[in-house]
Every structure is written in structure tokens, then in C-alpha cells.
Simulated scan of single mutants.
Amino acid sequence: MSTPRFLDLPPGVAPQRIETPQGTFAALEALPVSGVVERWPALLVPGVTGSKEDFIAVLMTLAQSGRRVVAVDLRGQFETPGPEDPDAYTCAALGADVDLLAQVIGGGDPVHLVGHSFGGLVAREAAVDGRTKFASLTLMSSGPAAIKGRRARNGRKIMEEVPELGLEHVWHHRLEPEALANDVSDDIMVFLHKRLITNSPIGLTRMAEQVLTMHDRTDELRQIEVPTLVLYGEHDDGWPPQTQSEMAARLGAECVVVPGAVHSPAVEAPETTAAALVRFWNTAEKHYLDLRSTMM
């Protein structure tokens, strides 16, 4: 596995492959450039059309808090292979993959779990299924149920067009025009194109279907009692900010609104996003250790 040469990796960040009983997952691993790993690790899960590279801008800062931080491609995404079975790409199946990844990455320690957009729905499944006890859960630009608005329309187009017309059609008629409108550089355009067409068409279609039909599991998540952060951009065009704020209130979760950001705070406001995550993780660990000391 090799990261595209035009996506420069920060110091301390390197491509890896994570072996699990379910298979091998492509990852970017970040370790502290100075100091040692002394805090619990973190696992970062991307959205439907995303990949581990969506977290590049925050990886070094997160690792410098004394952690091993791992961003992954889900099965069928970019550099992680996936099967032809559509049932392998449900939120429940992908959540089970996240459980295994967390158990391998944690090596016995609790793991901080972060899910972006569709990755938040997957991360929620991993928390709710009870197979793994997470140190914390962050829902980044992710809502309680099906996605809304413009991104929902794009998801429906993916469902309709990928099986019949293929990934190249989706690139030229959906993602490329959006990237051009956002003045994306030529090198990044090359990467975005490669990433899309490397996806499993079956996986991408089923993930799009999942993000459009997911039911609300907020009440179930609250019963897990895992420390939870809801973080989103003030101009989010996926799940409305008000919807995410209401979800945080239902969860009794901390809520952070990232000024100026839209749907990808880790890309659009990396330092603000990383600072919020580190602060939340440190607080969650302190609470756990304080609670354990009172029980001894």
C-alpha cells in the first residue's frame, strides 16, 4: 500500500495494514513525533465516499497528545478490499469490523472511536452492539437517522447511477463538478478520482442506501453510557446543525460547533477539531481513572 505522492503525510504518520480476523484493513497510523505513547489510542472512521486520508490534517496533532491514532478505510473503500456481498456493507456489518479493529488497535486498552458522517452511523453500531467497551465516542458531522438535504440527493443518485452507469459516470457527473466548483488542485483531483473508482461499486451503493434509510438509535446509544461528543460544522449541509444539537441533548453529550466549517471539520478546520478531540479524550480518560480509583 502506498499513499499518493501528492498527499504529503505529516511527521509521525505512515501507511499501515491492520490485520483482523475479518481481514486486512488499509490504515494511516500516527505516533507522537516526540515523547511516548502514554494515553489510550484512537480509531477514526470515514464517510461513504471518503477514506482514511480525510483525517490527514488532524493526525499529527492528535498523536502528539501521547496517543497512537489510526484512520482506516472501511471494507470496500479505497485501499481496503471488499466482497461482492451487499450484506457486508450494512452499518451493522461494518460496525462489527470496527469492533475487531478497535480490539486489535487497543491491545487490551479502551479505544476512542470517531466516526465522520456515515462513519458516525457505523461507529454508533459498534458502540451499541456491546462487543467492545470504548473509551469514548465522537459523532462528527453525523446525525441520528437518515441524512438530509443536498447530500441525501447525492446519495440517491449514487444508488441509482452506480449499478447501471458505473463509477466513472458518477465521477464525471457528480463529484468532479463539485470538486471543480471548490477550486480543488489538480493533484487532489487526481487522488479523488482514483479513490472513487477504486471503491467497491456494490459497497458504495449499499453504503449510500444505508445512510439514506438508517433509523434513529439515539435512545439505544444513550443506554450504553459511553462518553460521547457531538461535533459538527456550523454550516453543515448533511444533517442540519439543529438536528445534531438536538441529538446531543438527547444523549446528554457534549456538543462542539466548529466555526466556519461545513461537513468536514477535520479538513476545513483541523486545528480547532483536533483541539476539541484531544480535550474531550483527556477528560474521558480522567473521568474513567477517577471512577476506577473510587471503586478500589
Rank of each mutant, 00 (worst) to 15 (best):
292 R>A: 15
44 L>S: 04
205 T>A: 09
280 F>V: 05
93 A>H: 07
250 R>I: 10
234 E>V: 07
179 A>C: 10
158 I>R: 04
110 P>K: 05
161 E>Y: 00
226 V>R: 02
152 A>P: 00
276 A>L: 04
221 L>H: 01
71 A>G: 06
88 A>W: 01
27 A>C: 08
269 A>E: 12
241 P>D: 10
115 G>P: 04
2 S>F: 00
171 W>L: 05
271 E>I: 13
212 L>M: 10
261 A>G: 02
286 K>S: 12
264 S>C: 14
56 I>D: 04
49 T>Y: 04
93 A>M: 03
130 G>I: 10
235 H>Y: 12
238 G>F: 03
132 T>G: 08
153 R>G: 11
50 G>S: 15
77 Q>D: 04
185 S>Q: 15
85 D>W: 05
16 Q>K: 14
101 L>R: 09
30 A>V: 04
170 V>C: 13
116 H>G: 00
254 E>W: 00
205 T>R: 11
224 I>G: 04
217 R>S: 11
281 W>V: 07
92 A>W: 09
220 E>D: 13
192 L>N: 04
121 L>W: 11
195 R>Q: 13
17 R>F: 01
264 S>D: 15
215 H>L: 13
96 A>F: 05
133 K>G: 08
155 G>P: 11
211 V>A: 06
149 G>L: 07
194 K>A: 15
83 P>A: 13
62 L>Q: 07
27 A>K: 10
128 V>H: 08
125 E>G: 00
87 D>M: 14
258 V>C: 02
145 A>V: 01
31 L>A: 03
284 A>D: 09
239 W>R: 01
77 Q>K: 06
275 A>G: 04
239 W>C: 06
239 W>H: 14
71 A>P: 02
59 L>E: 06
68 R>V: 07
287 H>K: 12
196 L>N: 05
52 K>D: 05
222 R>Q: 12
193 H>P: 05
267 V>E: 12
43 L>T: 09
96 A>H: 11
144 P>C: 02
249 A>L: 01
143 G>H: 09
109 D>G: 06
62 L>W: 03
43 L>M: 09
233 G>M: 08
36 V>Y: 10
1 M>W: 01
48 V>A: 13
83 P>W: 03
285 E>V: 08
150 R>K: 12
221 L>Y: 03
105 I>D: 03
43 L>Y: 07
276 A>W: 02
250 R>H: 06
173 H>Q: 13
67 R>P: 06
79 E>N: 13
259 P>I: 03
212 L>I: 07
133 K>S: 13
170 V>Y: 10
274 A>D: 02
78 F>W: 15
282 N>F: 01
1 M>A: 10
232 Y>W: 08
296 M>D: 14
103 Q>E: 14
228 T>P: 01
141 S>Q: 07
268 E>G: 05
289 L>R: 08
165 L>Q: 13
